[in-house]
C-alpha cells in the first residue's frame, strides 16, 4: 500500500544541500512513499529564530503545520534534525494548549494563512524506514547490498534530544541507523561520539568551539575503520563534509572521510547510480567509499 506524506524538505535541502532532496525523492519512489509538496512552505526558523524570536518561530511552524493539514495529510515528513525538533516542539505545544492554539490561529487567519487544527504528526524519514512496514519495504528495495562497506552512523543531536519531544528511541543507545545500515547490506561501525554534536549551529559564530566538537566524531569514526559516515541531518552533513578540511587542519590529522546523507545510503543499496544520488555535490570526495560501492556492479 502506498503511504502519502506532506513533504517538508526545509531550507538547506532546497538550497545548498540539494542532493538530499533529490536523493529523498528518488528513494521515496522506490519505497512506495508518495511525497506531496507543501505549496508556500517556508524555513522553520532553525534554532536561530527559535531562540531569538520564540513567538515568531511558533507562528512560522504553525503555518507550516496548517499547510500540511490543508493537503489532508496526517504525517508531515522531515529530512532534517533541526526542522524535526522545531516542528515537533511547536506541534506538541499547540496540541497541549488549546488557548495558545486559538491565539496563534487568530494571527494566522489575520494574515490570510490556513489555521492549524492539530491533526498532523511530524516524523523524520529515519523513523519511517527504521521500523515496521517502512523497514520491510527498505529491505525489499535493497537489492544491491553494500557488502563489505563499513559505515559509521552519526545521529546528530536534534533527532535524539530532548527525548520527551522526539522519543523515537533511547537517546543514549540509538539503533535506528544501525538497523538501516544492516538492511542496506553494509556493516555498522560503532564509536562513542555517534550521539554527540557536530558543532554546526555555532560554526560561523564560534568556529573554534565548533571545530573542537567536530574533530571528535571524525577521528573516532576513522579510527574505528569506517569507509564513510552517514547522517540523517543536512546540517550535520554540511559540518562533517564541508568543514572537514578545516577540522583536519585544526587537529593536524587527515580524515578523508566521505559523508553520506541517509537517503544516499539507501539509494545506493537500492541500485541508484552515483549521478542520480548527486554524490558529486560533496565537498569531501566520496570516491574511496563510492568506488567500493559501485565497483560491486
Amino acid at each position: 500500500m502506498k503511504q502519502s506524506y506532506a513533504y517538508y524538505p526545509g531550507c538547506l535541502a532546497s538550497l545548498s544541500q540539494k542532493e538530499l532532496d533529490v536523493s529523498t525523492r528518488a528513494i521515496a519512489a522506490k519505497l512506495g512513499m508518495e511525497l506531496i509538496d507543501i505549496p508556500g512552505f517556508t524555513c522553520c526558523g532553525a534554532g536561530d529564530v527559535h531562540e531569538a524570536r520564540p513567538e515568531y518561530y511558533l507562528h512560522l511552524n504553525a503555518r507550516i503545520l496548517g499547510q500540511a493539514e490543508q493537503l489532508e495529510q496526517d504525517t508531515l515528513l522531515t529530512i532534517c534534525n533541526v526542522c524535526t525538533l522545531n516542528l515537533r516542539q511547536a506541534d506538541l505545544r499547540l496540541k497541549g494548549d488549546p488557548e495558545l492554539l486559538e491565539r496563534v490561529n487568530a494571527n494566522l487567519r489575520d494574515v490570510g494563512a490556513a489555521p492549524y487544527a492539530g491533526g498532523v504528526e511530524v516524523r523524520h524519514l529515519l523513523w519511517e524506514i527504521a521500523e515496521g512496514e517502512g523497514y520491510e519495504r527498505l529491505k525489499a528495495i535493497a537489492e544491491k547490498p553494500l557488502v563489505g562497506v563499513r559505515i559509521a552512523p552519526f545521529y546528530g543531536c536534534q533527532i535524539l534530544r530532548p527525548s520527551k519531544l522526539l522519543g523515537f528511541e533511547d537517546p543514549d543507545r540509538p539503533q535506528s541507523l544501525e538497523r538501516i545500515i544492516e538492511a542496506c547490506g553494509a556493516e555498522p561501525v560503532d564509536y562513542p561520539s555517534k550521539i554527540k554534536c557536530c558543532g554546526f549551529p555555532i560554526v560561523l559564530a564560534r568556529e573554534e568551539v565548533a571545530l573542537g566538537e567536530l574533530i571528535q566524531p571524525l577521528a573516532e569514526a576513522r579510527d574505528a575503520g569506517a569507509d564513510a559516515m552517514v547522517t540523517p541531518c543536512p546540517l550535520c552533513h554540511l559540518s562533517l563534509d564541508a568543514w572537514q578540511s578545516k577540522a583536519a587542519r585544526e587537529a593536524d590529522m587527515d580524515f578523508g572521510m566521505p559523508i553520506f546523507h541517509l537517503a544516499q545510503l539507501v539509494g545506493a543499496a537500492a541500485g541508484l547510480s552515483y549521478d542520480e544520488l548527486l554524490f558529486k555535490r560533496h565537498v569531501t570526495k566520496t570516491h574511496p567509499a563510492t568506488d567500493k560501492i559501485y565497483a560491486q556492479g
Partner: peptide, 19 residues
C-alpha cells in the same frame, strides 16, 4: 556574531521565506 547569525534567519524569512 551569533546574534547577527540569528538576525539573518529572522530577516531572510521575511525577505524570501527561506534562509
Amino acid at each position: 556574531k551569533a546574534a547577527r547569525h540569528a538576525q539573518v534567519f529572522d530577516v531572510s524569512t521575511r525577505a524570501t521565506g527561506y534562509l
